[in-house]
Design a protein around this nucleic acid. Structure first.
Lengths: 245, 245
DNA sequence: CAGTGGTCTAGACCACATC
DNA sequence: ATGTGGTCTAGACCACTGG
């Protein structure tokens, strides 16, 4: 049934409502962009007051899982290009301008076994397969970032067979639309590294130059890791912007 | 008067209550650690319902400005060592262990004119004065971070005269307790840079080695910049951890 | 116009902390 | 026992959206 509405001991009512709605989103019963039932409809369904449903939905809205729009309804959050850019792309020009990586040149797109790091990050066995995409992203007209994206092949069945030209600049929207996988949160580890000779060639710099390495693990709603993305970025007139609230 | 309780055109009631409480915190009328009046007391004072006060306080709690504790009360957020560490210190060992910089060796502590970058970041004129603290922070027993902290001298009148040994490891708690200045939010810019010969000496590495440069501007509640902190960190077995929700 | 979320109220009861 | 925040209800009215 699609009605797992339990209150497992002392959990507040609104939390049970929240989790029930969450379950429908996670299971795909409610897809990104869909409108949720109205507050009153949910209140009626779960036999709680409208205020309790409101608190549950406000909670989900605070976590960016749904978007509430007065007069229209409550909708499951979707990956728009702006959201992807503002939410997941943190490289900014030093003058504060938000320059997006306009072009990206795909170097390769293949299917292979994961290395130790990838297997660990994506919770895979060494015998499993991953699809690896390597590309160079340009900013302000010049090559600025080398990127190696790695995803479990089982969830992205034909990704390696797509023509290289078909890979869009914004991957997360494609994950969502084409494979039904919504990236919800990510954690990034940043380090300073020396450019390898390969990096140097790709970015037009001297080997040994300092590069900002960003190692990102992206997760779905239910916490499964879906992507390991290792980027090396030239921080020349640019920086990684982090806000601590 | 301490009662600027206006509703400037179409602003929700709870927002007016929130701003009124905020005003008391910002003005120092309510200091960090102080307990706020109870929900009913505030409701009575502002002539609104308790639910409206609740919404106002929940809003402040969501912004980390107050802390609510069931059965005890609502308190103005204060800088505990843990808060400082978990909230503002993002360097983590690669195995995930949260190693704090135990020791810090202060190299100098002096009063001088700001350079162009400092003046811009701290909204000062070139004729103003700043206090500069330079130090080396150790992690895991080895020198790992060089740090230059810069604050407006006018708000920290005798900071430069304090004995170097007196400067504590956690500065923000001292800012709050000794100067009544609460750091509330910060923004950090990260870059990869090459170690200068000075950096190399300080950290025991070769000149030119890649270092993670973190340039942080810390702000008070009302958005005034109070500190420019430039750190250069050896990311060897460590990284800067950033979570995107 | 009907339907949606947003605000606000008044009151009840619960859970926790302190004396 | 008292006072605090946390949950939940029922209902009123407002503001916005779209047919």
């Amino acid at each position: 049934m699609n009605d797992p509405f339990h209150r497992p001991e002392k959990q507040p009512l609104y939390a049970a409502v929240r989790d029930a709605v969450l379950e429908r989103i996670g299971s795909g019963l409610l897809a990104p962009g869909d409108m949720l039932p109205s507050e009153f409809a949910l209140a009626d369904e779960f036999q709680v007051s409208q205020g309790t449903v409101r608190k549950a939905l406000d909670d989900l809205a605070a976590r960016n899982l749904v978007v509430r729009r007065q007069g229209k309804g409550t909708f499951v959050a979707a990956h728009t290009p702006e959201r992807a850019l503002f939410h997941f792309f943190h490289i900014v020009a030093d003058d504060g301008a938000r320059e997006l990586p306009t072009k990206s040149r795909v170097l390769s797109c293949r299917r292979r076994r994961p290395d130790r790091e990838e297997a660990a990050a994506l919770h895979l066995a060494r015998a499993d397969r991953v699809v690896e995409i390597r590309r160079i992203r340009e900013m302000d007209g010049k090559a600025a970032i080398t990127e190696t994206v790695c995803v479990p092949a089982q969830w992205f069945p034909d990704l390696d067979k797509r023509a290289i030209e078909e890979v869009p600049n914004e991957l997360y929207q494609m994950y969502e639309e084409r494979y039904g996988i919504t990236v919800h949160r990510a954690s990034e580890k940043l380090r300073a590294v020396s450019a390898s000779s390969e990096n140097a060639d790709q970015l037009g710099i001297k080997p040994g130059s300092p590069l900002l390495e960003i190692s990102r693990v992206a997760e779905t709603l239910d916490g499964r890791p879906v992507e390991l993305r290792r980027s090396r970025c030239l921080t020349d007139g640019r920086h990684y912007q982090s806000v601590i609230v």
